[in-house]
């Protein structure tokens, strides 16, 4: 693939990233603008079905995901931010790849073609294609030894139905360490955050979240960096531990290192205020020259 082509993506935000975690969406847009990645949001996308559709009616979930795939142009990869949406869209696409009859049925249903070769990638994959060296060159400031836990949660690696697909383990550490951060990995960084049980069984999720944050505190971390908007929210709202840590979306920290100007607007939306930590590390305000990693 020629390098120009690899920088164009269609983009599926998903419900959480588009609303509750709008700061994650805004910071992603900033990252793409600063790196020159061309993102085109899917026209009129719908919910991927979330955990709920797949829990009570898997066929409905399949159809919802297939509609999204029918909206994606076949000539560029589809970029997805939310690990759950990524999982559902990929799984649906894989099923249609393995059984062309299912794909043709969906094409007839929506009256639009679905490319069997469509690539569905996570944002981390876009960064790998962009290249770590180029990313480092584009950095506006050093993360000054910010000690972060790369918190992946459960869905980005594990789904057994996708075990032959591409995974991105350790990419968050690779990227943020190159930009001057220090990864703290001996924590519960792949333990499930509790997912939708946060709404129904908050006491159960609180004990999980406290374990996760507690392990990060014990390991001496300053903050957690997540790749999942739902994890970010659960880790913030369900933590009752005395010592809380700021929870960043991965795209926020990346945008910060790349010199995005509107970070303050995102950080205001956090329930655990990350500004004192960033101020302490000299990461707020315009980047000073000579600080590049």
């Amino acid at each position: 693939m020629n390098p120009e082509e690899s920088l164009k993506f269609s983009y599926y935000p998903g419900c959480s990233v588009a609303t509750t975690a709008a700061e994650s969406n805004h910071s992603l847009m900033q990252v793409c603008r600063l790196l020159g990645l061309d993102l085109q949001e899917l026209e009129d996308w719908n919910c991927c079905g979330s955990s709920s559709a797949y829990s009570v009616d898997p066929e409905l979930g399949f159809n919802l995901s297939a509609r999204n795939l029918s909206l994606a142009p076949g000539d560029r990869p589809l970029l997805v931010m939310c690990p759950r949406c990524l999982h559902h869209l990929r799984h649906t696409h894989l099923e249609m790849q393995q059984d062309p009859r299912k794909r043709r049925a969906q094409e007839r249903r929506w009256g639009r073609p679905i490319s069997p070769d469509l690539e569905i990638v996570h944002f981390l994959e876009a960064l790998i294609r962009f290249g770590l060296d180029r990313l480092k060159k584009g950095a506006a400031r050093n993360l000054n030894g910010l000690k972060f836990v790369p918190y992946y949660g459960c869905t980005l690696f594990r789904p057994p139905a996708l075990r032959r697909q591409k995974y991105y383990q350790a990419e968050v550490e690779n990227i943020l360490t190159a930009l001057g951060g220090v990864a703290v990995t001996r924590t519960y960084n792949q333990r499930c955050c509790g997912s939708f049980l946060s709404a129904v069984k908050p006491e159960l999720v609180t004990s999980l979240v406290n374990d996760i944050i507690g392990s990060a505190v014990a390991a001496g971390a300053d903050c957690l960096v997540t790749t999942c908007a739902m994890c970010q929210l659960n880790l913030e709202v369900r933590c009752t531990a005395a010592k809380r840590l700021p929870i960043f979306h991965f795209s926020e920290i990346l945008a910060l290192a790349l010199g995005a100007k509107d970070c303050q607007g995102w950080f205001i939306r956090h329930l655990v205020n990350p500004r004192p930590l960033l101020k302490d590390r000299g990461l707020l305000g315009p980047p000073r020259l000579g600080q590049v990693p």
Binding site: S51, Y54, C154, F157, P159, P160, C192, S195, L197
Partner: peptide
Amino acid sequence: VCVSCHTCSS
């Protein structure tokens, strides 16, 4: 109660 976090299957 299962949220499909796949800890078990991993």
